[in-house]
Nucleic acid binder design. Sequence first.
DNA 1: TCCGGAAATTAGACAAAGTCCAGATTGCTG
DNA 2: CAGCAATCTGGACTTTGTCTAATTTCCGGA
Lengths: 136, 136
Amino acid sequence: MHYTRDNMAGLLRGHDINPTHQRIEIAHALFSRQEHLSADQVMAIVNTRHSETSKATVYNTLKLFLEKGLVREVIVDPSKVFFDPNTTPHHHIYEVDSGKLSDIDAEHVHISGLPPLPDNMVTEGIDLIVRVRRKA
Amino acid sequence: MHYTRDNMAGLLRGHDINPTHQRIEIAHALFSRQEHLSADQVMAIVNTRHSETSKATVYNTLKLFLEKGLVREVIVDPSKVFFDPNTTPHHHIYEVDSGKLSDIDAEHVHISGLPPLPDNMVTEGIDLIVRVRRKA
DNA sequence: TCCGGAAATTAGACAAAGTCCAGATTGCTG
DNA sequence: CAGCAATCTGGACTTTGTCTAATTTCCGGA
């Protein structure tokens, strides 16, 4: 599957998002790379050639993508949020020195022994983050 | 065990921290409550009566406590870091609507199937966060 | 007790991430 | 083409956290 800009329009429509020029560019930045990007990084990518998309739009669009389930939010770094185009169940390895973030497929990971939740609560998601450091 | 200010001095010394007035107050705020507090909250607590401790000192002190292993950092909210006086192995439940954060004892939780790390890497910690929401 | 230096604290300027708003643009639809 | 809703924009603003240079506190030795 190639993540062309044309395909992005379909992807957006499939998630009930009106595919505007800016939204296509932002989706393309995330999906063509298949990487975890911060809002800042998205803005830099989208505006490499000429300045095309404003900061407000980048933030609005990422929030919209989040609501529509097109991307996931990864909170590992106290200073910025990462957006993850991979919405399949998976976990993360975070390299604390470099800030490098990578995926762990959830398929083989098993978590047991969690206490039951109160009746009026539902699990929205389980985030498992393995923080690693380069050996001294 | 009562977390009196006098006991705080001993706790700090035991962690190789010079127990100054401000540090004792900050430690007392965290340990007497046994709760997760943000830097802002710590500052508010410490300065309820009169303004006694500066913002810089609160941040410096929390960072120092972190380095010395007196507290843990919990990164769940994109907008602020929480400091956790409980340094025993445990996980967290985060109520996304209210921002309420509570502990899950790690004793009965078992995580299996994590992929092996590259040789030159060491695990610094595993953060497991269960994000929950009030049922509709 | 007084002195000097090291450690700690401070106010406030600064930086970075993110939010908000009022006005301009875009793209329908009739 | 007019009208209208959705979208986008620049820029001011807020919040969390950092940095720095100056002051204060603490303590050991003469």
